[in-house]
Design a protein around this nucleic acid. Sequence first.
DNA 1: CACAAGGAGCCCC
DNA 2: GGGGCTCCTTGTG
Length: 380
Amino acid sequence: MGPGSDREFHCCHCRSWVPRRQSPLLALASKLHQHPSSTSVASMGSPDRGQAGNSLHPSRVGYTETPLTVLEQDPWEMEDSKPPRDLPAVGPERSLPGLYLSCFDMLVTEDAAWLLKVSEAAAPLSSTSPSPSAGTCASPRPEQCPVIDSQGLGLTLGLDEQMEERSLEQVQSMVVGEVLKDIETACKLLNITPDPAEWNVGNVQKWLLWTEHLYRLPQVGKAFQDLNGRDLCSMSEEDFRQRSIQSGDVLYAHLDIWKSAAWMKERCSPGDSKFTGGEELWSEADSFCSGQPIHLWQFLRELLLKPHSYGRCIRWLNKEKGIFKIEDSAHVARLWGIRKNRPAMNYDKLSRSIRQYYKKGIIRKPDVSQRLVYQFVHPV
DNA sequence: CACAAGGAGCCCC
DNA sequence: GGGGCTCCTTGTG
């Protein structure tokens, strides 16, 4: 079984060939399990990848370095909690605090806290478990993706290893579920199908815009114009790099995850409980991705329902009453603009549209009016 | 200066 | 016609 064979694929995160039964998502989960304090995306490259081992986006370093103890409670579930805005300033265009967390961010923040617990629980049992406090990418073989072979391991491993194996499967299941959730959210917000192979030219451009925005990449839409999803999927990493030296590899890696997720979706039967969460979400996403236009209030609600991804730009102040606050007006407007293919969208226009909802009884100002705070008349 | 409120014209489906 | 975008004026803190 050599590189490129049907039973292997190239893991963009660890840049190695791994058996096909382990998708990039599982590789991601496995790697995180081994290196809970590292970001698997570090190897994906970034505009700042001149600094070896840097994370995907410098501003994310702040999240990565967020003390895990702080993350034991979801900050977005805390009433009137403020998002952390004391991220390290790393550059002129990076001072914007309104970055939303991608699946990768979740992996290194909320999930990292969970992973830490898992690792801590496993550490006393296994001398092979890396210390959760180990430095970034402290693996002796950082370039190699850990491959799971539960069938073989069960026969040869001891109790410790079996327990670790079980926790690894839990990690995988959870991480994959979270990644699928993220993709599902993007599908809803962009109104595209989860399977990149089905994208038309417009969908590809939307996805590019979104990904560029997500990772603060330079705009490369022109380099990929006239390509549909099938074209995109057939391109190699080298093809991506040729079209965009700066961010081709990141785009390729991100697309790889989408492709993998679509592949897993196809593979998982409806009765497969392993990724039940993701499956449920997929069906939800499919119903949403039916090509129907989305209303602004729906879009805002979608953002609000994903606090781990968008909590830094919009969040609930009181979910029961439907009161929410737009933390980063420009950011929300940009997201809405991407969704509606309106590059000139800004908060002035978005807020005008919100105010139209006053008459319709969809959104109103709360009793105690505050700047950037609105209220759904009929909370979910 | 950013935000809020609302009028008005326009476009698209 | 509904929904939303765009531009505008006026007011507030």
